[in-house]
Design a protein around this nucleic acid. Structure first.
Lengths: 204, 204, 204, 204
DNA sequence: GATGAATGAGGCTTCATTCAT
DNA sequence: TATGAATGAAGCCTCATTCAT
């Protein structure tokens, strides 16, 4: 692991700290210390803490494929199961942290979208990438006729975020598991009479 | 009397400001100014900003019935429609504020649950009241056999929170509407074979 | 000398430091240290460094009579001589400081009037008090017919400020003395044929 | 060649910015941006911001003849009128800028002479060139016997600087005009009995 | 001689809280 | 109990300058 360049070190420190403490609760000084960087350097790359936030939201999409979607796609071939593997990924994060942290993008969406509206398009871009990936997977699933895949993917994202939120509030995985179980039921219903005759492209 | 007034004025100011700006971004000085109160007074009623937060989370449940659930129950008698009236209530809040503000409890859950774990039980109590109310309504609905009402209510809460989050991030109601439409579909499927003939008021 | 109140201690520290170093070159931290005060205290009385500057420019007029004009009026009864005593007061300030410091109001006028236009009225008020005092003195002088006392007083102020400026630039009293000597000549000419017959009110 | 260009671009940027904002309030970064130059380049030509200031004060005299004195000498042949044309030059500067900016040398004299004593000789050199030019003009005027031309020229400079200062403080040309009018009177008195019959072009 | 990243001290201001009246 | 001054740590950011390329 070569010494990352300064800009990336700053982004990585910000990513971790914003995830752990939130945007407002993270001081620039802490980011500097964790990144091993001087104030002037940070402000050389980012004009303000707010632009660092924007930079981070532009950086996140580059992490999604290598860390999240590609491993899932490699491990799981069946479309609907990929969706639940994705939810399991977030469950694991909650479990390992004692129902802390949650979804970094979701956290920022609630914390900063009102006070820093410039970042809204970047938040949306992250949500769109997430739900777009899910929709892409589901294109290969056999679901009831009339299913709107983009809408369904947005729904999955909503369930995930709302489930994570309840788990963090409760300090327990129970509400997360409840929401996911009900989502599973929704998929069961969508698949129930889906393709009596449809040919399956792949098997696993 | 005057005491109760002062305390309530503080709570109301905190409620509004935490909702508009978040907990961390709201300074105690701002709360004082908005409540028309001096520091000594606030610290007479609450030992710290954190205890004010706790006080607010204890105060919120007292607002839920008069402001949220009772008006819905009065206006809508059908169980499932009450659920969607509840979601419409949040949609209206988003619409009127330009996709800002969102759910005050959800915002606090993501912002403070890690850094202030003492308030977790209070957050959970608010979530439980919300989903408990929904579950109570749904007890009178005719849904598929095997439907777990508490689980379904938690699911509704998750969808609402995740839909609000996406709308705030996007600055648009579209993802909210998408998630709610898919939730409607879930209810349709749950009701499909539940009761042979019962009329549904709406379809989409 | 009783311990002055906090606000006055701050103003006195600012007065001295702004005079010695200028407004921009004086850090708030230095003012705090010299006044023996904590940041919150300063910002309790003044909303910003700029408002402290405004407060100082409102404070200055209260010093003019006791420190400047009244001692001169007590020591010197003749009108024109009072004017030159006033100039001598500034000369003494230059002499004792090695041609440094100069006129505190003049310094601020050049340094801040562009970047902080809100203080212009306060600068003007200080200039008006100074020249108003001079004009008041000259009302009792025998000067050529047609002499505009306010205009003459503004002229005296201009000469003083311009003379102080040159002395500070040169690091020498010579240009100051040259300007004052020429101003003396102007007064000599104004008095030359002034009142052949006019009765003198006072003698000394 | 390219070197001369760069150095001059830096000096011109510094001249403009120091005039508009003052020395202390102008950041080196701003100078760099306005000059289109990188830090290393500036520090190649000037060892510090302070040396840039010195360089600027050495550069200024080269601008005085082409921009200030020669145009006046071309337009106005009469000695005393040249002096008032010079004052009109500064008045125009105030008028065009809304009583901002003022005399660049005077501004620097008050701002930097205490904190940067090394530049005092350069300030004095600028003042001496200015008053020397005026004294040179006045050598051809018919003034009262015993008039000390250097002293009178220093006096004119003092009036100009003090008049500019008051105009900037007041945000109005009135005090400038008052001081100049009184200076006109001084010249009138000096010329009164000097030459029996010489016609004056203008009277106040 | 140009480039642009790095340095680290210091800039002004706000924070939640406590104290004296 | 209300008041408003005091506390002192920490907030984000800019400064003039230097370094390696």
């Amino acid at each position: 692991m070569a010494e990352a360049d300064t800009r990336t070190r700053i982004l990585e420190a910000a990513r971790r700290l914003f995830h752990e403490q939130g945007y407002g609760a993270t001081g620039v000084a802490t980011i500097l210390r964790e990144a091993g960087v001087h104030p002037g350097s940070l402000y050389h790359f980012f004009r303000s803490k707010e632009e660092l936030l924007a930079g981070l939201l532009e950086y996140y999409p580059s992490l999604f494929a290598p860390i999240v979607s590609r491993p899932i796609e490699a491990a799981e071939k069946e479309a609907v199961e990929r969706v639940f593997a994705l939810l399991a990924f977030y469950r694991k994060g909650l479990e390992e942290s004692g129902c802390r942290l949650g979804c970094p993008i979701g956290n920022l969406a609630l914390e900063v979208s009102d006070n820093h509206p410039e970042v809204r398009p970047l938040l949306e871009r992250n949500f769109a990438m997430w739900s777009g990936t899910v929709a892409g997977w589901l294109a290969r699933a056999r679901l009831r006729r009339g299913t709107d895949l983009d809408r369904l993917a947005r729904f999955v994202l909503a369930v995930m975020e709302g489930a994570v939120m309840q788990a963090r509030g409760a300090g327990s995985l129970a509400p997360f598991d409840a929401a996911v179980a009900e989502l599973r039921r929704h998929f069961d219903l969508l698949q129930e009479r889906a393709g009596a005759s449809r040919a399956r492209r792949r098997k696993r």
